[in-house]
Simulated scan of single mutants.
Amino acid sequence: MGINFCPCGSGQLFVDCCKDYVIGGAYPLDAETLIRSRHTAELLGCSTYIQDTWCPETYPGKDKVNMNCTQWTDMKIIDVFGGDDDIIVHVQKKYIENNCEHYVDKNLLIIRVGGKLMFYYSLE
């Protein structure tokens, strides 16, 4: 992969940030890293990582997850709050649709399943 800076918005080099999670088999230990690495996977089209970090209870199935339907461009983490097992990550994501930039704020619920933090769903 020929990218220098990590698409997650951390300002770090990809090799020092999300690469080991998205394509290297490592697993994030905190909710912010989970969300940053999932955003990177969305931008790079790494659907396996998206599936592997999505709680099986709420995963809609591979045929329902369209990695190309929304052209996400940027993400900013606004806040992270909650306990050890149920965490909410408030993000602002930017996407392009019909050549116009749009912003959406989301509260993402992260839960612990078998010791791993996993994306559960977006609280709207």
Rank of each mutant, 00 (worst) to 15 (best):
C8H: 08
F81C: 12
Y27I: 11
D74I: 04
I110N: 05
E32M: 11
F119K: 03
I111H: 09
C8Y: 00
K19Q: 12
T33W: 00
D16F: 01
G25C: 07
Q71V: 08
I96C: 00
L108H: 06
D105V: 09
C17A: 09
E101L: 01
A26F: 02
P56R: 14
C17S: 02
S47F: 07
G115M: 04
V91T: 15
K64C: 12
Q92I: 12
E124W: 08
F81Q: 10
Y49D: 07
V65A: 07
V22N: 00
G45I: 11
L44Q: 13
I50D: 02
G9A: 15
T73G: 01
Y59E: 10
I3S: 01
M67D: 05
S122H: 06
I88L: 08
P28G: 02
H39A: 12
Y95K: 05
E97Y: 07
Q71Y: 10
S10Y: 10
I3V: 14
N98E: 14
K116M: 10
I35H: 01
M1I: 13
F119G: 04
T53M: 10
Q12N: 15
E57M: 07
I23G: 06
E42H: 13
C6Q: 13
C17I: 09
D86A: 06
Y95M: 01
M75G: 01
Y21E: 00
I35K: 01
G115V: 05
I50Y: 10
D84H: 13
A26H: 01
Y121Q: 15
A31P: 05
Y103V: 04
P28Q: 03
T73C: 11
G61C: 14
V91W: 02
G11K: 00
Y120I: 03
N4V: 15
S122C: 15
F81G: 02
A26W: 04
F81A: 13
G9Y: 05
V22W: 08
I96L: 14
I87M: 01
Y103E: 12
C8E: 00
R38N: 09
T70R: 06
A26K: 08
V91N: 06
G115N: 03
Y21G: 04
Y21M: 03
K116N: 15
C17T: 09
Y103G: 01
E57W: 02
P7E: 11
S37A: 13
D52C: 13
T73M: 09
T48A: 14
S37Y: 09
G61Q: 11
K94D: 06
Q51G: 00
G45M: 14
P60C: 11
Y59V: 07
T40G: 04
P56T: 12
V65R: 00
L123G: 12
M67E: 03
D85R: 10
D85V: 08
W72I: 07
N68S: 09
N107L: 13
D74C: 02
C69L: 09
L29A: 08
A41N: 09
K19F: 06
T40Y: 02
L34F: 09
F81L: 08
I88W: 00
M75P: 00
G114I: 04
P60K: 11
D16R: 02
N99P: 06
G83D: 15
H90A: 11
L123Y: 13
I23R: 11
E124Q: 14
A31F: 05
I96D: 00
S37V: 06
D52I: 02
D20K: 14
D86L: 10
Q71F: 14
